[in-house]
Design a protein around this nucleic acid. Structure first.
Lengths: 181, 181
DNA sequence: TAAGATTGAGTCATCAATCTTT
DNA sequence: AAAGATTGATGACTCAATCTTA
């Protein structure tokens, strides 16, 4: 067992300095008991990222529902809205911003168009392409949902001091760089 | 716009001290241009968590495939394996460890049983309950996949110093506490 | 009545193949 | 050929309703 692994968290303390252990502490402790030879330090970070993302998804569901949206709708509408006027992107650009496949985006746009939140137009400059444009209603909902989301997520964030939030954001940015490169 | 929001990241620097901006930097900058009155600091943290989780999912897919597994299979098999002998849990306990619904777990267990990786037995002590037990093959695959996963994820983690990893794990633990409580 | 688990309907995702235009 | 978008087949998830035993 490596030195820095011990630094991550001393496993013989029942409760660390951060309070009672979370589910990942229990998960890592269990694996360490079963497979003592493996270096499990990545789990301390990455399992927490995955689990936290799951929790965030659940929490966001309620926020979006207030505005008549689901998560996948918000992803698309928000990308169009924050792009600014004329609130219009190609399906390919939307794919790049949302980490889904092109087939998924085609379906999303079709369903959003059926709801009157976007319009699909042919690209006048390229016969192969399409343009997806936000409607007024789509723009209103995207804005309202974003403002609500940011306000709602302040609450869990208050567990950290402002300086700690900055450190966390910075560390996450550097980790993400390895994947987005 | 609050003071600490500026501390999170000065948006007038094209590149921060952490290197070139990531997709979340661009996302937040765009929203800040469109809706200057909103406090968007939660996005700096939570959008990165969500996006990083997506990247991790993709990366893990390849690792699991080497061992003939998919992510959802690993979640179940790993929970059973790390529990130790007799490598057996109820569907309800599996649900609590994997953040999915009970209906999802029923399906997962059925499919894993069809593959010979788990066995489903009635609970001898409670006629309503069931017990899900890992087979030898299920245990072997779960172990091998975990060891491979931990080794593979060392690579992206090397973007951070050991002390930074500990700080990151600690901050994430405190954030998670707000959701798991 | 409640707890534990299962079922079925409906939704949304991915993947590979295809169509059209460049 | 290659780029952009769409289609259809398949897979997995959620939700609400249901079944069985406590």
């Amino acid at each position: 067992m490596s030195r820095h692994q011990d630094r991550i968290r001393a496993m013989d303390e029942p409760d660390g300095p951060d309070g009672p252990g979370d589910e990942v502490d229990r998960l890592v402790a269990a694996w360490r008991r079963e497979l003592p030879r493996a270096d499990l330090s990545p789990l301390e970070v990455f399992s927490r990222v995955t689990r936290l993302a799951r929790h965030l998804d659940r929490a966001r569901r309620g926020t979006f529902a207030v505005h008549g949206l689901e998560g996948w709708m918000f992803d698309v509408l928000a990308a169009l809205r924050r792009g600014g006027p004329p609130y219009e992107l190609s399906p390919g650009e939307l794919v790049a911003r949302t980490l889904v496949t092109s087939g998924t985006m085609t379906n999303r746009v079709t369903r959003l168009a059926g709801l009157g939140l976007v319009e699909r137009h042919p690209d006048p400059e390229d016969g192969r392409g399409a343009r997806v444009r936000l409607t007024g209603e789509g723009a209103r909902r995207a804005e309202a949902a974003l403002v609500d989301l940011a306000a709602t997520e302040q609450v869990p964030l208050e567990a950290l001091e402002p300086e700690e939030r900055a450190v966390l954001a910075s560390l996450l940015r550097r980790l993400s760089a390895g994947f987005e490169a």
